[in-house]
Nucleic acid binder design. Structure first.
Lengths: 150, 150
DNA sequence: TATTGTTATACTCTATAACTATA
DNA sequence: TATAGTTATAGAGTATAACAATA
């Protein structure tokens, strides 16, 4: 009975961890915003650019960013106005791919570097700590089916 | 030189962890929303209620939720309409405290339970994993001044 | 008939600025 | 003069519904 916490204290602990996680996520979010501030690019556009490693159907982007297709149209328009992406026709003629322009690729590089440098995980954790953290975060995201090995 | 990753791979690793962290935070956010959906209460109101352990000046709430005082007025109005909180005068007569009503306390209990039960950290991590995770999350949030022990 | 992207519109969350009443 | 809360307004981010083109 020594090592098995009762249900209530497990809940309390999970709540405490949740609060920590939320605080970290908020920190990460504002880190991201601050990192890209000099680039004069709204956060959602930056997030979209980071997704565009390869030209991709707008539909795929909607899936990856978990948002509506109409919002992708909106983002694509804004990115187009800035000359950062172009719509290119797909094989299936209903489909349009979004592809970074040359300027878009350069911007992606800038975003990526700025964000990594300011990253709270870089600033506050040692190499050892980061190595310990990775498998735990992966465990949180493992598929629903796999129950935790209690 | 074996154990010291070069700068580039450290960046890559931090980026990977960041993506994981963001994915988890999004999961946690939608878990929260789903958990409280049956309660028919908007997310920001639920978050505010969770803060109101004790009656607190509206100003304090603004600090804890890191938002503008005017928004707290907004939240307090909505919570008031639902009969969940009441404004009570403070000693300093400029100050108003927000206090949960009886219905508010009951709602807080419901939110708290629903959220803890659905919590992704409860669902996917073992007790052991949660115990390992806590100090790492705390390290991420430690004050800027304390450099990581590389 | 189902799917892709678009358009027009509207909603939620939150901030800014100007105000009031105290201190 | 500075602080707590309020009001009115505005903006960012995102969704819904109806639609056109293609499959």
């Amino acid at each position: 009975m020594v090592d098995v916490p009762d249900a209530e204290s497990r809940f309390d602990e999970a709540r405490r961890l949740s609060r920590l996680l939320i605080a970290i996520a908020e920190q990460a979010k504002s880190d991201f915003a601050e990192a890209i501030a000099p680039l004069d690019l709204p956060v959602p556009l930056a997030r979209a650019i980071l997704q565009l490693n390869e030209p991709a159907p707008m539909r795929d982007l909607a899936d990856h960013l978990t948002c509506d297709r109409s919002y992708i149209t909106n983002l694509a328009d804004q990115l187009g106005e800035r000359g950062l992406v172009a719509r290119v026709p797909g094989d299936d003629r209903r489909v349009k791919l979004l592809a970074l322009t040359e300027a878009g690729v350069a911007m992606r590089e800038q975003i990526s570097t700025a964000v990594a440098e300011r990253n709270v995980l870089m600033r506050r954790l040692s190499d050892t700590e980061r190595q310990a953290l990775a498998p735990l975060l992966e465990a949180v995201l493992r598929p629903e089916s796999s129950a935790p090995p209690t």
